[in-house]
Nucleic acid binder design. Structure first.
Lengths: 158, 158
DNA sequence: TACGATCGTCAACGTGGTTGACCAAATAGT
DNA sequence: ACTATTTGGTCAACCACGTTGACGATCGTA
């Protein structure tokens, strides 16, 4: 039975994980803003990623993000208004409306991937590539696989 | 100039950090609910922690959490309604209203600390104590020190 | 004493989440 | 072929959390 090291109380771990997440996301969006994507919010990037290049429907998007289809629809509305997504009628099913990324959406998506790679590289430069890889492997070992719930605002707040 | 390993794209790192954070917080609140604190939301635990055992004012709480005093006041309202906080007039300054934890609040705070220690221990059992410590040290090295902004819902969503 | 800074609160609003209800369209069953 | 059920999208009402602006009440100070 190991006792708790008073130097390393358990509550620090989640704070550090959140700080790491937030640092990456803030750095990403600072850089995206510099590259012209000033309106993009953290949430939007994840939604864009979830829509992907093939497109989806609002209902399916909701399932992917772990939120209701109504919430997904609202977020799509906003991203449509911002010019990142578009709705297209599905010729094979008049009920469905396909949600697709626009050229601007794909640009944001591509730039995000590039910046994320750069940020990871920056961490690797600071910590060493093996330490970053170890962190990823360790986190994978203690978190459910293929996890992707994006209802962060509602989850955290309530 | 290192190139990006296609096996380890940069966007995975923030997802894993978020997943780690969320896993810990979800496990904490599942256990707290089991111990009688069913109404506590993730945000509330942090607010409780920020109030501390000495108490504060809404304005100071807002500064600690990185949110406006109005937002802090609203959250205090909710935690008062839930029985975790109480407001007391400051006898030395009629403008100020001290926010203090109730007995129930202190109970939740204490249980949270215990559960967080247990969860960290569980990670140490899985990964090895050195790996958890390394993760903490590494995260500390790449995040701003003494960071504590808790405006997560508004930050992420917008 | 009068003035400026501070504390708490009220009001209005934006954003993201929920559930319930509903219509239209596709699919399944008799 | 005609119902009956399921499915996709939207509208409406609501809650939680954040924002800014305004405004009394109180404190500290010039």
């Amino acid at each position: 039975m190991a006792t708790t090291d008073p130097e390393r109380p358990g509550f620090l771990l989640p704070l550090l994980l959140l700080a790491g997440f937030r640092t990456l996301i803030d750095d990403l969006h600072a850089e995206l803003a510099r590259q012209g994507h000033t309106e993009l919010r953290p949430l939007h990037g994840f939604v864009l990623q979830a829509v992907g290049v093939e497109g989806t429907t609002a209902t399916e998007l909701g399932q992917r993000l772990g939120i209701s289809k109504q919430a997904a629809g609202k977020t799509v509305d906003r991203l449509v208004a911002l010019g990142y997504l578009e709705r297209v009628d599905d010729p094979r099913d008049a009920r469905r409306k396909l949600v697709r990324t626009t050229a601007r959406g794909r640009d944001g998506l591509h730039r995000s991937a590039v910046v994320f790679d750069q940020l990871r590289q920056r961490w690797a430069d600071t910590l060493g590539p093996d330490r970053v890889a170890a962190m990823e492997d360790d986190l994978r070992a203690v978190t459910p696989a293929n996890w992707f719930r994006l209802d962060v605002p509602g989850w955290f707040g309530g």
